[in-house]
Design a binder for these strands. Structure first.
Lengths: 226, 226
DNA sequence: CCGAATTTTCAACAAATCTTCAGTTTTTTT
DNA sequence: AAAAAAACTGAAGATTTGTTGAAAATTCGG
């Protein structure tokens, strides 16, 4: 799963094997990882490290996973994923009411844990991830969707690319040459008229008569104003 | 509490306040909630909605909670939790003989109700627990089984792998290249068309005409929406 | 080794999208 | 006011992409 990251994960478990395994795997995946081996230090580490996700073993000496989860949820804005053994099914109920966000049952596949982590990050920090909000536009590049005033626009791939580019560069005048270059690619052979054609179809889909988001700057290009 | 989704709850009470409160809270918990305000419509709703749990007020105009419970238990496979006022203690006895599974005495804390609900689900649908639940999908990776709306899908190994991957990464657009890479392996030599072929067979088996879980995002890939 | 299930390839088809083009309108220049 | 330049527009044709049925190749249990 390729993605620009910088997401931080705290792994808490008293079994060094597991911690090492996860640390290695997650770092390899591009996360910044810190570890802790018991509840107390986990909480301290969370305060200092400010992770986005905490992976927390239920069974630990001293303060158990539930306690830690409860405390974390109270003070920090993190997603908590718990690791629980198969036969501790009851823990599920207990933990869910204590605010854990998700569960993975041991033994688990790394792929599965990874998928959960991404799901959690997406859920908890939608803004940090592919989702960009600019004025009335909401661009979710991971879904390949753009919402306008809350409604999903039905766009063809090129329309999507063009609107994405325009909105992300709102306020600037973008010449047809630049647009062609950035959206169609440097090696596009055809005429600049195709930009005009696509601008029109975007205007249609935005019903841009009244608000005029896409302004044409004669002789220079187009500019999106919000 | 994303991952515990797929459970459906029907809330029946003639007091709109309570219904609204529960609806909001339970949806926030990740349940799929439907409501009814009297016995008759509750039974109709249960038939259609097929909830896992029914939360049922004892005191209602027309058919009372006991009647409804009796009828539900006769025809549907659901857990029934009754809401009963403090001074209707006798109701407790009455209800037990009529097949209700649990009681919550008004006024109750939401936390308490929640714990009861989870307990009920665990009890009534033990097989559903311990595995990954995402929307209407229940993935049991150990058994290599996926249930959809409670029914086991008959999948070939590749179909299983593909659906597993898609569901675990729901919400994201997954390109054929990525799918090929993750499901078939980085060294698969063949054409991307094979992904299309398998998508079709999954759609067939999901009877995906109406609900369209697997959306094709033209030019980009496929995305599972729940 | 055989037969069934599964995987993979292939080609025809359908549909969405892209691109071009020419005629029209709008704006600017002379 | 006429001419020129730039942008707009609708539609047709070309191209790309996805869907589908079926055949060929492969795998796997017995």
């Amino acid at each position: 799963m390729q993605q620009l990251q910088g997401f931080k994960i705290l792994v808490v478990d008293d079994e060094p094997h597991i911690v090492q395994f996860l640390e290695f795997g997650l770092e390899n995946e591009g996360f910044e990882v810190r570890t802790a081996f018991d509840g107390m230090s986990a909480i301290a580490a969370a305060k200092e490290f400010q992770p986005h996700v905490v992976i927390l073993d239920v069974m630990m000496p001293g303060m158990d996973g539930f306690e830690v989860c409860k405390m974390l949820k109270k003070t920090e804005n993190v997603a908590v994923i718990m690791l629980t053994a198969k036969d501790e099914v009851d823990d599920r109920v207990k933990g869910l009411t204590l605010g854990a966000d998700d569960y993975v049952i041991k033994p688990f596949s790394f792929e599965e844990l990874l998928a959960r982590i991404y799901a959690r990050i997406r859920n908890q920090f939608p803004n940090l991830f592919g989702e960009v909000v600019v004025g009335p536009f909401q661009i979710d590049d991971r879904r390949k969707e753009i919402k306008f005033d809350g409604r999903v626009l039905e766009l063809s791939p090129t329309e999507y690319g063009l609107l994405h580019f325009l909105v992300l560069n709102h306020g600037l005048v973008l010449s047809k040459a630049v647009i062609l270059d950035k959206v169609w690619g440097y090696d596009f052979g055809g005429d600049e008229n195709i930009v005009e054609v696509y601008i029109r179809s975007l205007r249609d889909k935005l019903q841009d008569k009244d608000r005029q988001f896409i302004k044409t700057v004669r002789g220079a290009g187009y500019r999106v104003d919000l």
